[in-house]
Amino acid sequence: MLAPVIALGAATNAGGAPRIEAAVPAPDAAPIAFLVDVSSGQILMEREADRRFVPASITKVMTLYLAFELIEARKLQLAQTFTVRPETFKEWHNKGSRMFVPKDARISVDDLLMGIAAVSANDGSIILAEGAAGSVDGWVALMNRKARDLGMNNSHFGTPNGWMDEGRTFTTARDLTTLARAIITRHPSKYARYFGREGFKYNNIAQANHDPMIGVVDGADGLKTGFTNEAGYGFLGSAKRNGRRLIMVIAASERPQFRNKAARELIEWGFSAHDIKPLFYKGNEVGFAEVQDGASDRVALLAPGTINATFPAGAPRNVKLTIHYEGPLQAPVAKGERIAELEIQVDGLPPSRVPLMTADDVPKAGTFQRLYNGIAGLIS
């Protein structure tokens, strides 16, 4: 999708800090680029969104997501500690980015998650995998199961940390956005605790976070950079302003400065070149779905939360709304089921879909009700 470059103003802001230009990055700087407005679900910009690439350390976002899921299921605890295996220390104590876990150390899950999220700890990822799942292979199997559950159909993980594995680990920008959205929306408190930190100190060694937006872009709060020789430079990032969140992917950049500049410009363009408008608030009735063999022949569909639409700034706010479901629904229907989707079509942007939920229980019809429904159907 082509989009204009929008300048935000002078070269510096009132405080003297450099002002970030808002622009869609050029293809040579960001061969893969993807930007989604989570508040509406709409895609604002996409380039090679389904092209497979090696995520490198961005893989660790899936390791963190899996850990968060296990903690939520009470299969893993933050205070739980794992002992570093001698073999693990020997292989990973001096390999790539790390948190410098000492030999034979006992380390908590909380510290491991901090090290993985803030300083991209390769050693921490392996220690967590072995401690929580018994082996790296066992952990990787769980990672891939979670990817399938999320619908990341163009992704596969071969390691917990994204270390080079001859291409067995791959993903797409679209899939990474799905992962980021899941970790942010399903685990908001854990996301806020572990992501967005400027650095982390462990074993008396302080290290900085390599995130190109933290402390530079207003509202930036994660997620993860990645680099290997085979992958180039990539970044999965997010920022939130005034209740509105954007998620972006930049990948296959040749140099870190290309990636960093592209990420900052794209996120600013996403905020400045688009406006958002609420269509329905939580609990608003959006429409109806037909019900077969039920005590009622239809059920109201409600917005489970605020449903927004994103519009190109200054463009007419033309929007087409369509409800999709596989129907008629078969009774019984339970209240709160998410059995329908609202498609939002805005001129100039790809369509997006958001879930709708049923407003009431619809029990199965009794004998006389079914007879009445049948006669009513013949008459109508």
Rank of each mutant, 00 (worst) to 15 (best):
L2S: 13
A3V: 15
V5R: 15
L8I: 14
G9E: 06
N13Y: 15
A14M: 08
E21V: 13
P27H: 13
D28W: 07
P31W: 01
A33E: 01
S39P: 05
L44A: 00
R47Q: 04
A49W: 10
A49F: 07
R51L: 12
R52T: 14
F53L: 09
T59S: 12
L66I: 10
E69H: 09
A73I: 01
A73Y: 07
A73R: 14
R74S: 11
Q77R: 12
F82C: 01
R85I: 06
T88F: 07
T88G: 02
K90T: 14
E91Y: 11
H93P: 00
F100G: 03
K103G: 02
A105Q: 07
A105K: 08
D111S: 15
D111K: 10
L113E: 05
G115A: 09
A118S: 13
V119G: 05
G124P: 02
L128W: 13
G131P: 04
A132M: 15
S135W: 02
L150W: 04
M152S: 06
M152R: 07
N153R: 14
H156P: 00
G158I: 11
G162S: 03
W163D: 04
R168V: 15
R168L: 12
A173K: 10
A173N: 10
R174N: 02
D175S: 04
R181G: 08
R186P: 07
G196F: 04
G196R: 07
R197D: 06
Y202L: 10
Q207E: 12
A208Y: 15
D211M: 11
I214S: 04
G215T: 00
V217M: 05
G222R: 05
F227N: 12
T228H: 01
Y233R: 14
F235H: 14
R241H: 03
N242I: 09
I250G: 09
I250P: 06
I250L: 10
S253D: 07
P256V: 10
N260A: 14
N260G: 09
A263S: 15
E265S: 08
E290W: 00
V291M: 09
S296M: 14
G305P: 00
I307K: 06
T310I: 09
F311D: 01
F311R: 11
A313G: 00
N318I: 03
I323N: 10
H324P: 01
E326P: 00
E326D: 14
Q330E: 15
P332C: 05
A340R: 02
L342P: 08
E343N: 03
D347G: 01
R353W: 01
V362M: 04
R370C: 00
Y372D: 02
N373I: 01
A376E: 12
L378T: 12
